[in-house]
Design a protein around this nucleic acid. Structure first.
Lengths: 143, 143
DNA sequence: GTCAGTCGTAACAACTATGGTTACTTCATG
DNA sequence: CATGAAGTAACCATAGTTGTTACGACTGAC
């Protein structure tokens, strides 16, 4: 898979809004964010719309419109961002149901599901350990 | 999406070969494996070819041809299988280089890379904890 | 009320990855 | 030589991601 940049762009956008608000601005426009991310504003709006569904961002319409965070950067973990934008499980099972007559075909699904569950739990634990405030601090340190 | 079933099919195929050999057979054909996985033999051959490059499987041609494991199931971890078939990193960075004039655009790459490295390390640690023998035991227990 | 600016969304194209299928070649053993 | 299976190329279909254009909906400023 790979080349899945959705988490990167989402973290970038939220961090950008957070820093912008911290500097005294009320709202950030999708065009401003898109300039920083180097993409199209619609891409930003689509992604932020998913984050809004998860309660992480809000949007205002009309004149002087734009995006705001609903919470402080320090209270948003990468896990919340990940869950807001990544629907499916990390590893999928078989495209077609394997042969139930075969011992392996019959038992491999449950066996792998147990393993995958533990792996995803570890992934989530790791994602939960980093907040967007941590990301912002990393950004400022790198600058 | 995910629907990334490559790890599932690879683990299934290797486990199947291992059990088949344990039962006294010398080689397993891609058609036999494909029947258990419920897919096309070419799909199995393509995937096993990648595992052969990684040194996990071997193939014999000609009459009486087929596939064998190079090592015991207990000595093959899911991490080795994963690395043999998943080329890229779990999370990608930006599709286009973000704005270097922007503080966030400039620093977000290194900041996220550090985070992603830790996450992948945790994923690999978890994958390394399970061997194909563990998978086979789970399969037999489920049956 | 009008206007301007911005979000909300649909629609489309391009690209990539995955999965499935057919067809043909290559090879080694009996 | 005949046979059975791997090796591989060539497609097709599907789905996800990214980028783009276009247009409607909304709201604050005037």
């Amino acid at each position: 898979m790979s080349a899945n940049s959705r988490l990167t762009v989402a973290a970038h956008a939220l961090t950008w809004i957070g820093l912008y608000q911290r500097r005294g601005h009320e709202v950030a426009t999708s065009e401003q964010i898109a300039t920083s991310v180097n993409t199209n504003p619609v891409v930003i709006r689509r992604l932020l719309a998913e984050l809004r569904k998860a309660g992480l961002a809000e949007s205002r319409r009309g004149a002087g419109a734009g995006w705001t965070l609903t919470r402080d950067l320090a209270s948003i973990s990468l896990l919340e961002v990940y869950e807001a934008i990544e629907p499916g499980p990390l590893f999928g099972l078989h495209p077609s149901t394997p042969d139930p007559e075969c011992v392996v075909g019959h038992g491999i699904g449950p066996a792998l599901t147990a393993v995958y569950d533990e792996i995803e739990a570890a992934l989530r634990t790791q994602l939960a350990m980093t907040t967007l405030e941590d990301v912002l601090q990393g950004v400022l340190k790198a600058a």
